[in-house]
Amino acid sequence: MKRRSLAVPYVFWMAGFIVAPIALIVVYAFTAKSGGFTMANFSAMGKYFSVFSRSFALALIATVVCLAMGYPAAGMLARVPARRQRILMMLLMLPMWMNFLLRTYAWMSILEETGLLNRLLGVFGISPVHLINTQAAVVIGMVYNFLPFMILPVYSVIVKIDRSLIEAAQDLGGSPRAVFLRVTLPLSLPGVLSGITMVFVPAVSTFVISQLLGGGKDILLGDLIEMQFLGQAYNPNLGSAIALVMMVVVMIFMFFMNKFGEGEDKAVIM
């Protein structure tokens, strides 16, 4: 079956709609508003250092929380009987099919000052908590939206681990802790790595969650980029420079993640 030519149209498509747009980002990043080469877009970025550090910090917290919540959940899922596993997987995927904006919007009504959470706390006589328009609310929104992205890859790796390896470790006298640390965890590392990138990348670049739940007060990288392209501060050159820096930092991050997991299978994407 020699039909290489079938891939040719897509090669052109990729050149036009994947490579060219990214090349344009690079070009715009090094171009002044009036045209001509410049580095000014990058030197102007210094004042946004706090935005960078806040975005990375919040995304990191959200990723750690997702891992802490998601890993045990994935392990649990992998151990239930096959029939129930299918139902639970379906339940896990179902929210992802609901519009992401709608789900984040729903959190607004839960976290509001007079929202459902505070009403619930009031019933138990607990004083209301201030959450909406805080960074905590942004992290909750990130964890909520991206938790399935952690559970799914970890689950798909754990479920394939050969049970006999774990049994062998147990037979050889390994404590549950040792079995987990020396067998299960290393074998599930590829899933963990892809889970981390699948949570971290959308979290670090979000602008919807920060605008809906963070009140637009402490802006994140996503907000900053969005403002340069579609917002009031129209400046696609600066926007491209910020986007380029973010892309490079994320790429470096992923490179080290993959190095860390070297020798294991490459991180799975879906």
Partner: peptide, 17 residues
């Protein structure tokens, strides 16, 4: 690339194009 890149990068890149 579109799978690895953040959506916002893909979005603004295509917007520019």
């Amino acid at each position: 690339i579109p799978l690895i890149n953040a959506d916002i990068i893909t979005g603004v890149a295509m917007c520019l194009l």
